[in-house]
Design a protein around this nucleic acid. Structure first.
Lengths: 134, 134
DNA sequence: AATAGGAGTTCCAGTGACTGGAAGGTCAAT
DNA sequence: ATTGACCTTCCAGTCACTGGAACTCCTATT
């Protein structure tokens, strides 16, 4: 398989696949003409990475997960630990975003949004108090 | 005010303030010794930026919001538009994260997390079907 | 055989918003 | 005079790509 085929089949862009080779995530063979030559196993790996990335795992997580996948002596607890840590980070991001959303939507609500200059959003941002945010 | 004082008062790290000067967000004066010399207005601006950043606005948004803040002829509708667009992006991020969270937490739930190698998380990631994620 | 196009290749630079670190200058107090 | 805290600049790194230039290669058509 050439890079275009595996890109289409896996859903991972060709550019990204080259990048993954650069950082040692995949190691396709090379044809006589210098083209990358992907085996089924390479495709499989890329699809794995693609799905892991879609779930928000970092590249390093992907490396870890691939290693565990290929390790017959793994314990499912190891995989679960990685996933749980990632889940924790997702939760953290969500709650940060939710708190931003709440503040912001309350401000947006208070703003007339008309032709006049008075704006509670700007008023809030320009509060004179020192270090009101952390 | 030296950079350390304004950093402490505004909550924006000194390194970040220097970066903000680099990209033209703030333009403190310079003392004879070469030190940056911050006026009240610079501090105020930095606090403004800090709060906007804490609400997740991009640097470019900050630039826009500062310009609107300093524009007597602004219409609150302009500010509201920026905030609403940002709010839309926050919502998008939240729903992406929520969908990740749901998939992931269901997988985590299904995983025994013990000493055995069998793992539904890895099983899901290694599904053989082509391009199951988008 | 020439040519056109759509692959593929490498390499370099840019994204956003900082952050770390090195190497050095300045200031206040002891 | 020296210490230590502060300030300066500049360069490099982060994360995970993405865009683009300049080039080669393959396939099909004229």
């Amino acid at each position: 398989m050439n890079i275009g085929d595996v890109a289409e089949r896996s859903g991972v862009p060709a550019k990204t696949i080259r990048y993954y080779e650069d950082i040692g995530l995949v190691t396709p063979l090379r044809a006589a003409n210098g083209y990358r030559s992907f085996r089924e196993i390479d495709f499989h790996k890329l699809a794995f990475i693609g799905r892991a990335r879609a779930l928000g795992f970092t590249i390093e997580d992907c490396r870890t997960l691939l290693a565990l996948y290929n390790d017959d002596n793994r314990e499912s607890a190891q995989v679960k630990a990685v996933a749980e840590e990632h889940l924790r980070q997702i939760d953290e991001k969500i709650s940060k975003l939710m708190s931003m959303k709440e503040t912001l939507s309350s401000l947006v609500h208070q703003c007339a949004g008309d032709h006049r200059p008075d704006c509670p959003i700007l008023a809030d941002l320009s509060v004179v108090d020192d270090a009101t945010f952390s």
